[in-house]
Nucleic acid binder design. Structure first.
Length: 278
DNA sequence: AACGCCGCCTGATCGC
DNA sequence: TGCGATCAGGCGGCGT
């Protein structure tokens, strides 16, 4: 599942390759991704536009286009569960689940999305109100504390709520709570300032290093972590501490990792390293 | 307002 | 071995 670090990496990888360029043709192969617009409308509004910039907000990329008459047009892309961006040079074959293709001269930028949970929307109206951006300077331990303080839900559920903290999903929420030694079931508002500092202190570097790792993967043509088929790898080196490791030994204490459901989503926890009470 | 939960999808995995 | 059933999950929408 593409989260903040994956989306950020896609944006940084794509931008220098298409900035300032005009999209000559837009093909919508899976119309559901451009809803509520009709495929033909989506296409005709974008063809001929020039890309000025790309900005990430949460897990979305905001594409800043300008049409031939000089009018700005925003497009918000979301990768859902299984989306990814690919660049094809001339003659390259489309990925199996190509959903939308943007042709810029001789190269094509393709949104591939097997499960079709992704979306491409014109205008900014569809962007939900997001919590603070973890990679912005304003995201301090105190800022994190403020968004957690008014939430009575479990910290794991709160952390992956985009209205609380932008861009953090299931994988990075589980990993960050492990690294901070926090029990995912604790009520968010019960975290102490010390917990806020610890969680902040692990979350930001975790996300930043994942961005770099993902960028390296993209530049090398390797799949990103979430695209691999559940290869755990070794922790700390791009591998996972707890996510998707049910029953496997904790990398720190060898206690088997447990999995349970919170708010309909899998949470992974080391029951020894992440205890509520000491 | 806050929060739980369903449904959208399809590939992978499970169970018989 | 084959095949249907089940599961995963971000997020919008809806119900409580």
């Amino acid at each position: 599942m593409p989260e903040l670090p994956e989306v950020e990496a896609f944006g940084r990888w794509l931008l220098p390759r298409i900035r300032g360029r005009r999209v000559a043709e837009v093909e919508v192969l899976k119309p559901r991704l451009v809803r509520p617009l009709e495929a033909s409308q989506f296409r005709s509004r974008l063809e001929g536009c020039r890309l000025r910039g790309l900005d990430r907000r949460g897990k979305s990329l905001v594409w800043d286009w300008v049409d031939p008459e000089g009018r700005p047009l925003s497009m918000v892309s979301h990768l859902g569960m299984t989306g990814s961006w690919t660049i094809l040079s001339e003659g390259g074959s489309l990925p199996r689940h190509a959903a939308v293709v943007f042709r810029f001269g001789d190269q094509r930028v393709v949104l591939d999305d097997p499960r079709q949970f992704g979306s491409l929307r014109l205008g900014m109206e569809s962007m939900a109100a997001l919590g603070p951006e973890p990679l912005e300077p304003g995201f301090t331990p105190e800022a994190l504390g403020r968004v957690l303080a008014r939430d009575r839900r479990p910290i794991k559920v709160c952390l992956m709520d985009p209205a609380r903290v932008a861009g953090v999903g299931n994988l990075y929420a589980s990993e960050a709570l492990f690294l901070a030694g926090i029990d995912p079931t604790r009520a968010a508002h019960s975290l102490t300032p010390d917990d806020h500092h610890r969680l902040h202190g692990v979350l930001v570097p975790l996300l930043k290093s994942a961005v770099e790792r993902n960028l390296q993967a993209l530049r090398a043509g390797r799949p990103m972590l979430y695209q691999q088929d559940g290869q755990p790898g070794s922790a700390g080196d791009g591998g996972l501490w707890v996510y998707d490791r049910e029953g496997e030994p904790c990398h720190r204490c060898r206690t088997p990792i447990i999995r349970f459901t919170q708010s309909g989503r899998s949470t992974y926890q080391c029951p020894r390293c992440q205890r509520s009470c000491v």
